[in-house]
Amino acid sequence: MKKSIFMALFFVLFSLTKFYGQKITDGATVDVSGLAVTFNILNKESVSVGGKNFDRYKVSATVTNNSGKSINMRLANAPQIVMNIGLVEVNCINATGAKLTSKKIDLKPKPHNLNVTYWAYNKDGKYESSVIPVIAGYYLDPGDTVSETGIFIVPQGEAPDVSVRKLQ
């Protein structure tokens, strides 16, 4: 009985750390499983949306791989739409999403591009080779950094309430 209660408590605590992120403030850096995430407010201005006043923040988020290991995501050999390649999610809890602005920023690894040569007939009927760039996968080597920017609109007088969590 005690063992099952302990296991249930352990499972609840483990799942909470996976789903809920760490708080981060302007200019701070947080370590998320070997990934250093930095959040910065670049600009602030007041806007009016639907007769109400809000604060509009232009922000940036950066992730640096400090894990000592390379992160690689290889794609299958068939054409596919890749949606879930994010490494880290920077989520603004009090963002309204007004005026089609962001509520979160997903930091994704770098694409690994390959040039593929293929043969086809052109519009004149001549058989010729062409080169097309293809994404073969995604990577983030040790020490590599990727950045994204976004715009958060929050209620006037409030600063962005931001948390960070690892996605992969």
Score class of each variant (00 low, 15 high):
I93L: 13
Q156T: 14
A61P: 02
T149Q: 03
A120T: 13
N40P: 09
F152M: 03
L114E: 10
R56M: 12
A95E: 03
V162W: 02
N43I: 09
P111E: 04
N40K: 11
T64L: 13
Y20A: 10
D106S: 11
V47L: 14
V88F: 01
V116R: 09
D31A: 11
P109T: 01
T101R: 02
N77M: 08
T96H: 08
I153Q: 04
F152D: 01
V164P: 05
K126H: 08
Q22D: 12
I105G: 00
S46H: 09
L100A: 05
K2H: 05
L167D: 01
M73Q: 03
R56E: 14
T17S: 06
A98W: 11
M83P: 00
A95F: 04
F10W: 02
N40I: 09
Q22V: 12
G27K: 14
Q22G: 10
I135L: 06
L114F: 08
F14R: 05
I5E: 10
A61N: 05
E148S: 02
T149P: 00
S102R: 07
P142L: 07
T29G: 14
N53H: 12
K99C: 06
K44M: 15
P109V: 00
Y20I: 10
S67A: 09
E158K: 12
I132G: 06
Y138S: 00
F6Q: 07
I41E: 14
K108N: 07
I81S: 13
P160S: 06
I151M: 03
T62D: 15
V146I: 02
K69Q: 03
L140T: 07
A136N: 13
I151Q: 02
V131L: 09
S102F: 05
W119N: 11
N43E: 15
L100H: 05
R74I: 06
A8Q: 02
S48N: 12
V30G: 09
S48I: 12
E148V: 01
E89Q: 11
R165D: 02
S48M: 10
S70T: 02
K18P: 01
S130F: 12
L114R: 10
L167I: 03
V88Y: 00
Q22A: 12
V49Q: 14
A78H: 07
V146D: 00
K44A: 15
K3P: 02
S15R: 04
V63G: 13
A98P: 08
V63N: 12
V12S: 07
I135W: 05
I132T: 13
G86N: 00
L16C: 07
N72S: 06
A136Y: 11
L87S: 00
T29K: 13
Y127W: 12
G137D: 02
K3S: 08
I24W: 13
K110N: 07
K99Q: 08
D141I: 09
F10L: 06
Q80L: 05
A28H: 15
L13S: 07
M1V: 08
D26Q: 15
I81P: 01
E45H: 11
L9T: 04
T62H: 14
K166R: 03
V59E: 01
F54N: 01
D161K: 04
N53G: 13
S60M: 15
K23R: 14
M7C: 07
A76T: 10
V37C: 10
T96S: 09
F10T: 04
V12G: 04
L16Y: 08
V12Y: 08
E148T: 01
G51P: 10
T17F: 04
A61L: 03
I105S: 00
M73C: 02
K104C: 09
